[in-house]
């Protein structure tokens, strides 16, 4: 694999690199798709994810009701299969008589976004700092590591309660509160992997042929630790959505008009004893999404991991 990367670098010097990049991307994307097609679980994951994204975007067309439409006379109605339920509200209604199914469909928008944005920021910042710190060590590593230790040592919920109280409730404040500490985990992971990888032979070899440090980090080492980051990141997407639920439990979540799975799970906890569906179905929607993201993540890793091909 070292060879092929070197090959890429050489080609760069001859052809317009952007054009080449684009061509390579399309070719590899097709190639990847070809492999993905033959990986049943990954494909399943992908399909479910696409379904989620599509239903989130097309929510106004799919959802049977307006998710904010209240009907105080029809509160806590059970799903259709339970006694007292009806097909008018397939999954029943919530504490304000809103259609639960519609809220779950709409809830996908905000929840997917919360998960992706919060994890995305965390991965971006954490991986970047982690690889630099792990590769170069020295002052940078010391400072960032100590800072990361400091942040990690600060209990998350206390931090979140404080931040939400200071900035006031709101979507962007929530994303900030969720991702502010999230990067540390990725920083530590990438830094640790970096420490291991940089002692390996292929890195020595790249250095011997005179590749720059940055090139080694981003095109030699990064691909090798990518799958680890991916596994953690996929787990984190769901975790961020769950964290939002914990914040809602403490009374600080997403503004209540916007349906979000986390707040729905938290909001229905008092009614769990009498109306389990309010809290349970949004949670199951979340579990299925996280499961699918992981199936896809695992599949991609299997495909991308060269050691698998040896078998």
């Amino acid at each position: 694999m070292t060879d092929s990367s070197l090959g890429t670098a050489n080609e760069h010097q001859i052809v317009n690199p952007y054009l080449l990049e684009l061509r390579l991307l399309t070719r590899n994307a097709l190639h990847l798709w070809g492999q993905l097609r033959r990986h049943p679980t990954a494909l399943l994951g992908l399909i479910v994810i696409i379904l989620y994204v599509v239903s989130a975007i097309a929510a106004p067309f799919i959802a049977p009701y307006d998710p904010t439409e209240q009907n105080l006379m029809a509160r806590n109605k059970p799903p259709f299969w339970a006694e007292g339920g009806s097909l008018d509200h397939i999954l029943g209604t919530d504490q304000l008589g809103r259609d639960l199914l519609s809220r779950i469909i709409y809830g996908g928008r905000v929840s997917i976004l919360v998960g992706l944005l919060a994890t995305g920021f965390s991965v971006l910042v954490g991986a970047l700092l982690g690889s630099l710190a792990g590769y170069f060590r020295g002052r940078l590593d010391d400072i960032v590591s100590r800072f990361a230790d400091l942040l990690m040592a600060f209990p998350f919920l206390i931090f979140a309660i404080g931040v939400m109280s200071m900035l006031g409730p709101g979507f962007s404040n929530l994303i900030f509160a969720l991702s502010f500490k999230g990067w540390v985990e990725f920083f530590r992971l990438v830094r640790g992997e970096m420490l291991v990888e940089k002692t390996k032979e292929y890195v020595e070899a790249a250095r011997a042929v005179g590749r720059s440090d940055l090139a080694i980090i981003f095109s030699e080492i990064a691909p090798n630790i990518f799958h680890t980051v991916l596994v953690l990141a996929t787990l984190r997407v769901g975790h961020m959505i769950v964290l939002e639920a914990s914040l809602s439990f403490l009374g600080l979540g997403i503004p209540p008009e916007i349906p979000a799975w986390g707040s729905m799970v938290a909001g229905g906890r008092v009614q769990l004893l009498v109306a389990y569906w309010i809290s349970t179905f949004p949670g199951l929607a979340l579990a299925l999404l996280v499961l699918s993201i992981n199936l896809l993540g695992e599949g991609l890793r299997d495909i991308l991991d060269p050691r698998l091909k040896l078998q």
Binding site: T8, N28, L113, G120, L304
Partner: peptide, 28 residues
């Protein structure tokens, strides 16, 4: 080989992020 795949994945993530942004564009 690996490096290129990695870039594809980055692209994939970016696309996912974009769809997410699109989704929030639809929320009130």
């Amino acid at each position: 080989m690996n490096a290129r795949n990695w870039r594809i994945l980055a692209l994939l993530l970016a696309v996912l992020l974009l769809t997410g942004l699109l989704a929030v564009g639809c929320t009130p």
